[in-house]
Write a protein that binds this DNA or RNA. Structure first.
Lengths: 229, 229
DNA sequence: GCAAAAGTGTTAGGTGTACACCCATGA
DNA sequence: TCATGGGTGTACACCTAACACTTTTGC
């Protein structure tokens, strides 16, 4: 390939991933200790540099796979942060993505290998560089997204119960929701399939499992339908 | 500064600006002919490469100033596009911003110098590379933004009339709005200051000028208020 | 006086929200 | 039989959207 733009500056471009999961009725984020200088050992989001022949999505997928063992994830770009002094090592522009994963699929052996931990988003504490900013912006975006599109399902196993789903939404929006209204809204959209099977792990009566029907959902979206909470 | 990350790939990073203005009751976008190879002469959005010691915002400001002569503009990041083959010259990752400007402040001598043109967004035609994609994503975002926050004012002169404001919103959302409901909503927020002066250019009766009161608006936002259309 | 745009309130319908009781089951 | 969480319908308040006539003024 010819080098048309050879007199222009090049910069280091990194991708930082906010990997989110749901457990113990709370959203958790995967963080690790930085493996390299500078700031080695500081608490950090998971990232990687964008390679020459790799798209941004591919970088995200690579990072997510490396740290979770999961191949297909829901991801969305949050934004790009390009202040000159934001990384103390060298000038690095960072593209931030969040990824929603089903924690049942998480490869727990990676926790140790990468010195990584799942932290409740309400108890994150101080992260390195501007990573707290990334997280705050992500949560704002993710709340808006889950409030208008049913992407929350990506945080749950394939089969889930309505009480689980409600507790997920309550964790995301950090506020209690009315059970009847919530169930009505969710079922009214007609994108959930009720299964015969019940989850008996959290009550004697047991709660029916449901499954998300992506085809119906896509049809809804195509028709311009949106929901709220 | 030490070079901690010296073994990582660097990439060309560009900023592409969707510069939007309002005239003749329609949103217009500033486009130009590409000045350099490859694809020299193709219709293109306005952009520039991010320099080593320049933040993304600074790059946008530089590009907007260069092509419009305006220093302070409202801008917002749309997203970052990083497919490997998106630029045919070389691998370039592009950060897209839109900027809203008051066309009365536009320096018309620059139109000729840069071979630039203001084009109605409904008649843009084919742009180079993936710039049509950039524009489509921008318009979607801008519509959402103007529907929930009063950023539309940035497209108008400091003094404007309510019929002008309504026609701006109708242009943005490409649908007619009810005059009484529109005026009521806008005035009810109490962020517009009515002036004594009237604009007589479009009717015998004349329409009162208003001015946007940013302080009151910031107070509203701070209190968590949002409006819709 | 008339044409042309500016300005002004009210109502009906729909949407969102609050709310309380019965059911199924395992221990 | 009882304790525990799952499941179900309605009434009211509020907000959104539809709608038509009067005012001002330059020609």
């Amino acid at each position: 390939m010819e080098r048309f733009y050879q007199h222009e500056d090049k910069v280091l471009l990194s991708v930082d991933c906010i990997i989110l999961g749901f457990k113990e009725n709370a959203i958790h984020v995967l963080i690790a200790r930085r493996k390299f200088e500078p700031l080695k050992g500081e608490r950090s989001l998971l990232g990687g540099f964008v390679r020459k022949a790799e798209s941004l999505n591919e970088t995200v997928a690579r990072v997510v796979l490396e740290y979770t063992g999961i191949e297909q994830v829901y991801m969305e770009q949050v934004g790009t942060y390009g202040e000159v002094g934001r990384d103390i090592g060298e000038r690095v522009v960072s593209v931030v993505y969040y990824a929603l994963i089903d924690m049942e699929l998480y490869d727990k052996t990676l926790e140790e290998r990468h010195n990584a931990r799942w932290v409740n988003i309400r108890e994150v504490g101080t992260l390195t560089l501007d990573h707290n900013q990334f997280l705050a912006d992500t949560l704002r975006l993710m709340r808006r997204r889950t409030a208008t599109r049913p992407v929350g399902f990506n945080l749950l196993p394939e089969k889930f119960t309505l009480p689980q789903l409600q507790s997920l939404y309550e964790a995301i929006h950090q506020q209690p929701l009315d059970k009847r209204n919530f169930r009505y809204k969710m079922l009214e959209m007609d994108i959930l399939e009720k299964l015969e099977e019940k989850d008996k792990s959290s009550s004697r009566k047991g709660a029916y499992y449901y499954r998300f029907n992506k085809e119906k959902y896509d049809r809804l979206l195509h028709d311009g339908y949106f929901f709220s909470i």
